[in-house]
Structure formats: structure tokens, C-alpha cells
Design a protein around this nucleic acid. Sequence first.
DNA 1: CAGATGACTCCCA
DNA 2: CTGGGAGCCATCT
Length: 138
Amino acid sequence: MGETERLPVFERVYLVVQQVPRGMVASYGDVAAVVGEGCDARTVGYALNALSTWRDAEVPWQRIINGQGGISTPGTRQRRLLEEEDVAFDAHDRVDMRHFRWPGPEAAWAAEHDMNMLPPREGSQNGPEAEANQLRLF
DNA sequence: CAGATGACTCCCA
DNA sequence: CTGGGAGCCATCT
């Protein structure tokens, strides 16, 4: 299907963030990689910031953290929300990305929305969720 | 309409 | 490990 139209970048960012399941986290860069052209890590931060007090109930913004596994928002709200989802922080206030990192969208979903898959990471432990994403396209 | 601004990440010194 | 620069969306002065 040749869709010449794509949703605005911010809307695509929200769509991707909504795919991150409870108890998992994704980095700004990961979300940007899935959205693709016209989106970088910074844009994701801009998009989530614009979300502010308006649609935060529909988009699990708290699951997006920086590449170091740390929280980039001021205050302790984001950390509290994550801990409520059983996401653990270490002594350096960082999340162990090897264990909680979202492996990326499923192939079917990605194709459906014209999004990209995340490249497999060596150091990450692949759970059943990750295996589901290992579907080969051919 | 132009400029400032904001929840990031990578690269090089 | 610390620090500075580039990249570049949408919204609000």
C-alpha cells in the first residue's frame, strides 16, 4: 500500500510509546529509531514534553528513559511510576537496560504503521517477548 | 513571520 | 570520567 501520507512525527512518537508494555522501558533513541526518518532522540524528548498535562493518561511516557538507564525528568514522579510497575533501579539510580529494555515492536505492527524494527542487541537477555519479535520477514 | 526553547544521544578532546 | 558541539520537531513569545 503506497501511503504518501504519514502522521506528524509527534503523533508517531506517541504511537510507538504506547507499544511499550508495562514493566519495560525504552530509551529516547530507541523510540526515534522505530519512528524513523525525521525523528531523533531529541525529537522524542520534545514530543513527550509537549504531551505535558494533556494526554499523559493515554501515553505511558514514564517508560521512556535515557540511554544510560537514567531518568531525565525533574522530580521523582517518573521513578515512582516505574517502580510501581516493578522496574528496578540500582545504586546509581539507573535501570538495568539488559533486563528491562523493550525489544521493539512486532514485525506485523511495524509494517502496518510504516515503522522500523529495533536491531537485536547482543548484551540483552531475550525473553519470550523478544522472541516474538524475532519473526523473520522471509 | 522569526527566534527561542525543551524530558537526548553520539562523537571527539 | 568531564565537557562542548551538532542534529533539528512543534509550539509559544
